[in-house]
Simulated scan of single mutants.
Amino acid sequence: MLSRIALRSVAGRQSATTALVARGSATDAVGERDEKNFPRPVRGEPGKVRLGFVPEEWFQFFHSKTGVTGPYTFGVGLATYLCSKEIYVMEHEYYTGLSIFVMVYYATTRFGPKIAQWLDKEVDAVENNWNEGRVENVKFLEQSIEEEKAAQWRAQGQELLIEAKKENVLLQLEAAYRERLMSAYTEVKRRLDYQLEKSNMERRIAQKHMVEWIVANVMKAITPDQEKQTLDRCIADLSALAAKK
């Protein structure tokens, strides 16, 4: 029984080592395990036994050749042969061992199931603890993947925000360009209006001075006699117009 457990533990370690070696090939490009071609190792369970220590395979081996009673007949016959030929001598150590065997058998049948249940619970607790750690690690990695996807989504949003800011800067530059263009237009128009007003003012001043100069020269050219004659003629014309009315 103990030898079978030792062999199975060694085989389990070898399979675990093989799984660790093949870990690189058991995972694909994205890091996910190929559960179909590389299944996860399962904790081995001891096989069935009879009489507390005899493997079930031995009985199956005899059952195909001698029937159901074959293993028991073989065991009793072998023990009888050893004892009758004094190959196995029944000295005082034999009875001591027999007493110990009876006590062990009693303890096994009395306390064995409870101890087995307790040990199974402890093994299940350790296995559940290992699985819990693995599940929590998987959840943590999945959460990290989701956070990474969210970070990528935020990064894409930042790209859109940067594009919007660039567009806003271009609009501000366009507004500043139009404002400066309007300012240049206003300044040029104001200066042209100033030049026009200046030209009009110079023309009016020149016209005024010309009129005053002509009037002054005409007034200088008129003598007092001509002025008196003109005044008399005007009075006569007015009198004639009054008489006609």
Score class of each variant (00 low, 15 high):
residue 122 E to C: 03
residue 34 D to K: 06
residue 70 G to V: 07
residue 163 E to F: 07
residue 111 F to D: 09
residue 17 T to S: 08
residue 197 E to Q: 08
residue 92 H to T: 08
residue 143 Q to F: 15
residue 4 R to A: 03
residue 201 M to F: 11
residue 4 R to G: 00
residue 228 K to M: 08
residue 68 V to D: 04
residue 161 L to E: 05
residue 21 V to Y: 15
residue 136 E to R: 14
residue 123 V to L: 07
residue 57 E to A: 10
residue 185 Y to T: 02
residue 220 K to S: 01
residue 73 T to A: 06
residue 136 E to A: 11
residue 120 D to H: 12
residue 158 Q to R: 06
residue 126 V to C: 00
residue 82 L to C: 07
residue 193 D to P: 07
residue 22 A to C: 14
residue 64 S to C: 01
residue 111 F to W: 15
residue 113 P to M: 07
residue 92 H to P: 00
residue 69 T to P: 01
residue 197 E to D: 06
residue 30 V to W: 15
residue 180 R to C: 02
residue 162 I to W: 09
residue 105 Y to M: 05
residue 199 S to L: 09
residue 218 V to C: 01
residue 89 V to K: 08
residue 107 A to T: 06
residue 167 E to Q: 05
residue 140 F to V: 10
residue 74 F to M: 08
residue 63 H to M: 03
residue 82 L to V: 07
residue 39 P to V: 14
residue 143 Q to K: 14
residue 157 G to D: 05
residue 122 E to I: 09
residue 57 E to R: 13
residue 132 E to G: 12
residue 78 L to A: 04
residue 235 I to W: 10
residue 193 D to C: 10
residue 130 W to Y: 13
residue 48 K to G: 02
residue 71 P to F: 12
residue 81 Y to M: 04
residue 202 E to K: 06
residue 112 G to C: 09
residue 153 W to P: 00
residue 163 E to C: 00
residue 20 L to K: 12
residue 180 R to H: 11
residue 51 L to A: 13
residue 231 L to Q: 08
residue 27 T to C: 11
residue 142 E to D: 13
residue 126 V to D: 01
residue 136 E to C: 08
residue 89 V to M: 04
residue 225 D to S: 03
residue 68 V to L: 04
